[in-house]
């Protein structure tokens, strides 16, 4: 998995609440048993005026320079709610996003980000809106800087502190393979099963 340590990049504001994963990647855009080739379908219903013909909607933020080069998305409460489809994260990663800053996230989407090297940053709504206003004043020059080791977002002359779980932080900083990490605990898993088999035999069909 790709590491995330430090990023300074153009940020695109999409300040709506409850942007769901059906919006991020409509089910019609998930056409194969694959993690790739999804970015063209990202935000398809907002990004194109004619979806099948792929006619670009000039009004949509990610179609406008310099936001078309953004690596950070700024959004509203409950970003990534809805369907568990990891395709939403795969599409955003393939398009170029490395971080999303929002007041809250859908729980499954948050976990999917961490497992794909995208940093989900939780900041209060006022902070996200202040950053968005500063970015919009000069989007190419006013780049947002995120430092994961110190858990700070630098923007608009302010250092915004954010929280992240220790294991999620380690996974992103080190680019760890979580399955490999857990498999090292195999003796503990086996010990649990041996004890559990006595207590809950009905689990072990």
């Amino acid at each position: 998995m790709e590491k995330f340590v430090h990023l300074k990049a153009i940020a695109a504001p999409l300040l709506r609440v409850n942007i769901d994963t059906d919006v991020i990647i409509p089910s019609r855009e998930m056409k194969g048993v694959s993690k790739t080739g999804l970015s063209v379908g990202m935000f398809a219903n907002w990004r194109y005026t004619d979806v099948p013909a792929r006619i670009s909607n000039p009004e949509f933020v990610l179609n406008r320079a310099p936001y078309d080069k953004a690596h950070i998305l700024l959004s509203g409460d409950n970003f990534g709610c809805g369907s568990s489809r990891e395709h939403a994260v795969w599409a955003m990663k393939e398009w170029g996003f490395r971080a999303v800053i929002a007041p809250s996230f859908g729980a499954i989407y948050y976990g999917n980000c961490v497992r794909n090297g995208i940093l989900p940053v939780v900041l209060p709504d006022e902070a996200v809106r202040a950053i968005a206003a500063w970015v919009e004043a000069s989007p190419a020059a006013n780049q947002v800087e995120i430092d994961l080791p110190s858990q700070k977002v630098h923007a608009a002359g302010v250092a915004y502190a954010f929280s992240i779980g220790e294991s999620d932080k380690d996974m992103l900083l080190e680019g760890l393979d979580p399955i490999g990490v857990t498999l090292k605990r195999d003796p503990a898993i086996q010990a649990f099963e041996a004890k559990d088999r006595m207590q809950r035999p009905w689990v072990y069909i």
Binding site: G111, R115, N116, I179, T182, L183, I189
Partner: peptide, 14 residues
Amino acid sequence: IGSSEGEHALATKT
């Protein structure tokens, strides 16, 4: 869960 966590659960049962 997502597909990556699905892989984790299938491989480790945790």
